[in-house]
């Protein structure tokens, strides 16, 4: 019974749906404010029903399967992408008591599940039989290879520091001191996260002005809805990952609850949006340059720093 609740309500399907609707709304509203606009406003209080309507509309609209595509690949991939993107929620310790799948190796599961997602999106682009989608797919693959190295390395730093791969115990062991030690790792994680989630300045794979909408180009209706769901579920996984790994998860100043985790996730989201509103997109070439000449070496240095800190600071204190 409890399992059923976890799968269907929290942190399962309903929660992800609600999160998608709410975050989509929040993004649009926040973006509008930075644009000196208002954003959705007439549907529901503060326009909060707007994204609900948008997503339900997508659900009921015609889903076109263009001529010439592989129908199996074309309709299978969005479903698969959405499912895979939702899986990490099971591994994250949402509150001191709720972790759906408790495992010694939950950190490993988290990063692998996050890391596989771009590959699925590449397949969606590959199956679309559209030149622009294909280019989008290729771009996503290139970006994945160069960004995930530093993503994995950054995610490794808490594991090394605390000597565990279990997210639960990472959160339990985290302190103010460990927060400061992990801060450079958090910075790197955040940058890699922008790349992984295809956010500006790394929104190269779905660059509207260059390749229309990348791998999204041919998708409509339900399939598009699933892809959007996958995107937002991945947002959640990555934000929650950031909060758990580096910011102390559900721990708060005064009490421990889901609420603290939520606030931390939103802070990460706000940073992401602010960057989105002020930074133009860079090109593939610059991204590769940046990733391999700065980001990866820095992540390696960060690992070295963590090891030193573990021996001389963290170990000495605790």
């Amino acid at each position: 019974m409890e399992m059923l609740f976890h799968v269907v309500v929290f942190p399962g399907l309903l929660y992800v749906l609600l999160w998608t609707v709410a975050l989509f709304w929040f993004f649009r509203k926040f973006m509008a404010a930075l644009h000196k606009r208002i954003g959705p406003s007439f549907n529901g209080p503060g326009g909060s029903f707007q994204t609900l309507f948008d997503l339900s509309k997508l659900l009921t609209k015609e889903s076109i399967t263009p001529k010439g595509v592989n129908p199996y690949l074309f309709s299978m991939m969005p479903l698969l992408a959405a499912t895979i993107a939702m899986l990490p929620t099971a591994l994250i310790p949402w509150t001191p008591t709720i972790t759906v799948v408790e495992s010694q190796y939950s950190l490993l599961g988290l990063v692998v599940l996050i890391g596989i997602e771009p590959f699925l999106l590449f397949l969606t682009g590959f199956g679309s039989d559209n030149k622009y989608s294909f280019l989008g797919g290729i771009r996503i693959l290139t970006q994945m290879i160069s960004m995930e190295t530093s993503f994995f390395l950054a995610a490794l730093s808490p594991a090394i520091l605390f000597g565990t791969l279990s997210l639960q115990s990472i959160v339990e062991q985290s302190t103010w001191l460990s927060f400061w030690i992990l801060l450079p790792g958090f910075g790197l994680y955040f940058i890699a996260l922008l790349g992984l989630l295809e956010q500006p300045p790394f929104n190269i794979p779905d660059a509207e002005q260059e390749i229309v909408y990348g791998f999204y180009t041919e998708y409509s209706g339900t399939n598009y809805f699933l892809l959007k769901l996958a995107e937002f579920a991945e947002f959640m996984a990555v934000f929650a990952g950031a909060a758990t790994l580096f910011l102390g998860g559900f721990k708060g100043l005064f009490f421990e609850s889901y609420f603290c985790l939520f606030i931390k996730m939103i802070i990460v989201a706000v940073f992401m949006m602010a960057i989105r509103a002020s930074t133009p997109r860079i090109t593939m070439k610059h991204m590769l340059d940046f990733s391999w000449t700065y980001l990866v070496p820095l992540s390696l240095l960060n690992i070295a720093w963590i090891m030193l800190a573990k021996i001389f600071i963290f170990g000495a204190v605790s």
Binding site: A32, R37, G39, P40, F42, L58, Y216, T217, Y219
Partner: peptide, 15 residues
């Protein structure tokens, strides 16, 4: 600001 009313431009006709 027509987004107030829920209008949104999309890059591709498919959506």
């Amino acid at each position: 600001d027509w987004e107030r009313y829920g209008f949104l431009p999309t890059p591709t006709p498919r959506q």
